Simulated scan of single mutants.
Amino acid sequence: MAAAHPNDRLGFLLSFRGELTGARIRAAVAVTGLHPRHAMTLMQLAPGATSQRELAATMEIDPSQLVAVLNELESAGLCERRRDPADRRRHIVEITPAGKEALGHIDQAVSEAERELFGNLTEAEQELLRGLLDRVVVDRAAHECGE
């Protein structure tokens, strides 16, 4: 039996396209001196302050990994953490004005990269792709639990 062509294997196709897309997005974000994980964190903080725990859950990232990202962003003056006066164990995280400015540069660079990456797709096709990617199961435990 002949092996399947890589383009016939969705996992390989998605992985390969994902690597190419990731490289383009990393290059776009790098113009700000940041990494995509920093950009994602700033995007999540843009609407307003949130707890560190909620941020980790929203980003689906281990809290210890988030601490490292926040340390880097805070050192760069792009976000700040403070204790919640109502619960001293809880940290509130907020984007700074410098973080908002950096996010503006990131948004421009990523928009340009996305025009290059997805320019051959109509708006409807882009929406369809978003919907399909949202349905791809990457968390085996959640899938097995029927979530």
Rank of each mutant, 00 (worst) to 15 (best):
M1Y: 09
M1N: 07
M1F: 10
A2C: 02
A2T: 12
A3Q: 14
H5N: 13
H5K: 12
H5A: 14
D8Y: 04
D8I: 03
R9H: 09
G11K: 06
G11N: 11
F12S: 09
L14I: 13
S15G: 11
R17H: 11
G18N: 04
G18H: 06
E19M: 13
E19V: 08
E19I: 07
L20N: 12
L20V: 10
L20W: 06
G22N: 14
A28H: 04
V29H: 00
A30N: 10
A30F: 09
V31F: 03
T32M: 02
G33P: 05
L34Y: 08
P36M: 09
P36L: 09
R37Q: 12
A39L: 07
M40Q: 11
M40T: 03
M43Q: 14
L45V: 12
A46E: 15
P47K: 06
G48P: 08
G48C: 08
T50Y: 01
Q52W: 02
L55P: 04
A57Q: 15
A57H: 09
T58C: 01
T58W: 00
M59A: 11
E60C: 05
I61Q: 10
I61C: 03
D62C: 03
D62A: 15
D62Q: 08
S64N: 05
V69A: 01
V69Y: 01
V69N: 00
L70Q: 00
E72G: 07
E72N: 10
E72I: 07
S75E: 15
S75W: 01
A76V: 00
G77I: 11
G77K: 06
G77C: 09
L78D: 03
L78W: 06
C79P: 02
E80L: 12
D84C: 08
D84I: 09
P85A: 09
P85R: 13
R88S: 13
R89Q: 13
R90H: 05
R90G: 00
I92R: 03
V93Q: 00
I95K: 00
I95S: 04
T96C: 03
T96I: 07
T96Q: 02
P97Q: 12
P97S: 14
A98Q: 15
G99S: 10
E101I: 05
L103H: 02
G104S: 11
G104D: 10
D107I: 04
Q108R: 15
E112Y: 04
R115H: 13
E116R: 13
L117M: 14
L117A: 12
F118N: 06
G119I: 11
N120E: 15
L121W: 12
L121Y: 15
L121A: 12
T122F: 05
T122P: 01
T122M: 06
E123N: 05
A124S: 13
A124E: 15
E127S: 11
L128F: 11
L129Q: 10
L133V: 14
L133G: 02
R135M: 13
V138M: 03
R140E: 15
A142S: 14
A142H: 04
G146S: 07
G146E: 10
